[in-house]
């Protein structure tokens, strides 16, 4: 089964770049990614630019409207994702727990809906 792990983080709580904690975090991300690749679970994994670079697109009455943001009330923003192939939810949870931001923010694990193309 394919799962997506959506990584939510509060930028204020993440270690600043060039701090020792930051390089520790990055090497932990490296270890997680390597683990997924070695076990064959890895499908994709990306980090996102900060939420200040985001643009929200909506189509209203046929017209495209754009907006800066989202600036949700919550402090945690989507910061990255993995797509992993796992046997079941337990395995997906075990992998998600290896993501450094599981300890600093939160990781939402969701199965990917395989649409019947019949």
């Amino acid at each position: 089964m394919k799962y997506i792990a959506l990584i939510y983080m509060d930028p204020a709580k993440s270690p600043p770049p060039e701090s020792p904690d930051f390089s520790k975090m990055m090497s932990d991300y490296g270890i997680a990614t390597q683990t997924y690749k070695t076990s064959g679970a890895w499908i994709a994994g990306e980090a996102l630019q900060p939420v200040t670079t985001a643009t929200t697109v909506r189509v209203k009455n046929g017209r495209t409207e754009t907006m800066d943001g989202p600036f949700a009330e919550t402090k945690e923003h989507l910061g990255g994702l993995y797509v992993l192939d796992c046997a079941d939810l337990d395995e997906a949870i075990r992998y998600a727990a290896m993501i450094p931001h599981a300890a600093m923010g939160s990781v939402e694990v969701r199965p990917i809906w395989t649409i019947d193309r019949a």
């Binding site: 046997a87 079941d88 939810l89 199965p111 809906w113």
Partner: peptide, 18 residues
């Protein structure tokens, strides 16, 4: 069904917590 919760008795590594 949808989230892939296994219909299985967990193995030794997940046993205690489960």
């Amino acid at each position: 069904a949808r989230a892939g919760i296994a219909y299985a008795v967990p193995g030794p590594d997940g046993w205690a917590a489960r």
